[in-house]
C-alpha cells in the first residue's frame, strides 16, 4: 500500500497529462490549467521542507558549537529579517526605530524558542517562557506601533524600502561577485583544457580563442568578429542542436520510465 498507491497516482496522472495534450477540447484545457496550478502549490510546500532543513541544520550547528558555528547564525538572522521585510510595509517618512526594535525582539524570541525546543535540557522551560514573553512584546509592538504593519495578502512587502535595499545592495552584489569570482577559476581551468595535446584539444582551443578574441580592436578585428560569429552560428549551432535533441530524448525516456514505474528513486527508502 505504502509504495503501490504512489505508483498508481504517477501512472494515472502521467498518462492523463500525455492524453490531454492530444485532446483539443475546452475541458481538456481546464483540467490542464487546474493540474498546473496544483503542482505549483505542491511544489511550494516541498520548498518549505527545504527551508526547514536549512533552518534545522543551522540550529544544530549552532547548538553543537562546532567550528565556525557563528556563521549559521548569520544565515538564520538574514533569512528571518528578509522574510520579515517581505511581509511588512513601512509608512513613508515614519521613524524606523520601532520597526528595528520589532526585528530585534522577533530575533530574540526566535532564538529563545529555538533554544527552548532544540537546546540543552537545562533551563528549557525558562527559555520557552522567555520566548513566549518576547512574542507577546512583539505582538504589542505590531499592534500599537503605527509606523509599520503586516501585509500577508497583498504584495506591499515587495516594495518595502528595506526589502528593496537588501535585494539591491546585498543579494545582487553578492550574486554577481560570486559569478565574477569564477573568472579566475575558469581561467586556470581553461589553461588545463586548452593545452593542444591532440587534434580534439586543438579544435577546442582554436574555437575558444576565436570567440574570446572577437572584440579585439585592430586590423584583424573585423575578420575575428566575422569568424567568431560563424563559429557561434554554424559549428556551435550544429553541436548544440545535437545535444538538445539528445537531452529531449533523454527526458522523454526518463519520464516514460517514471510513469511506467521502472524508475522509483523518488519514493526513497522505507
Amino acid at each position: 500500500m505504502k509504495r503501490q498507491i504512489p505508483l498508481v497516482i504517477v501512472f494515472v496522472f502521467g498518462t492523463l497529462m500525455v492524453i490531454q495534450y492530444f485532446v483539443p477540447h475546452e475541458n481538456s484545457e481546464i483540467v490542464k490549467g487546474f493540474l498546473l496550478d496544483w503542482i505549483v502549490i505542491i511544489g511550494i510546500f516541498a520548498l518549505a521542507l527545504g527551508l526547514w532543513s536549512l533552518v534545522q541544520v543551522s540550529i544544530d550547528k549552532i547548538n553543537s558549537r562546532k567550528e565556525n558555528w557563528e556563521y549559521p547564525l548569520v544565515t538564520l538572522i538574514s533569512l528571518t529579517v528578509m522574510i520579515f521585510f517581505g511581509f511588512t510595509s513601512h509608512a513613508e517618512d515614519a521613524s524606523w526605530w520601532g520597526y528595528f526594535l520589532a526585528i530585534a525582539v522577533l530575533l530574540a524570541a526566535l532564538w529563545m524558542l529555538a533554544q527552548g525546543l532544540m537546546g540543552n535540557a537545562a533551563n528549557r522551560n525558562v527559555k520557552s517562557l522567555s520566548a513566549l514573553g518576547l512574542v507577546i512584546v512583539f505582538s504589542l509592538l505590531a499592534i500599537f506601533d503605527g509606523s509599520w504593519e503586516f501585509k500577508f495578502y497583498t504584495a506591499e512587502g515587495l516594495t518595502n524600502q528595506m526589502f528593496v535595499h537588501f535585494f539591491d545592495y546585498i543579494m545582487i552584489p553578492l550574486q554577481a561577485t560570486m559569478f565574477a569570482l569564477l573568472a579566475f577559476f575558469i581561467t586556470s581551468a581553461s589553461y588545463r583544457a586548452f593545452r593542444a595535446r591532440n587534434l580534439l584539444a586543438t579544435l577546442l582551443l582554436i574555437s575558444a580563442l576565436i570567440v574570446m578574441l572577437r572584440f579585439t580592436p585592430g586590423p584583424w578585428g573585423e575578420y575575428l568578429a566575422k569568424t567568431s560569429s560563424w563559429v557561434m552560428n554554424v559549428p556551435n549551432l550544429a553541436a548544440q542542436r545535437a545535444i538538445v535533441i539528445g537531452i529531449g530524448l533523454g527526458i522523454v525516456a526518463t519520464a516514460l520510465k517514471v510513469i511506467l514505474g521502472i524508475e522509483r528513486g523518488y519514493m526513497g527508502k522505507g
Binding site: I5, T15, M17, Q20, Y21, W38, V252, L256, V258, G268
Partner: peptide
C-alpha cells in the same frame, strides 16, 4: 509520497509531449 507522486506524475506526463 502521495503529493510527491502527484507532482511527479503531472510533470512527467506534461514533459513527454512538450519535450518532443
Amino acid at each position: 509520497r502521495w503529493p510527491l507522486a502527484m507532482y511527479i506524475g503531472i510533470s512527467t506526463g506534461l514533459a513527454i509531449p512538450l519535450e518532443m
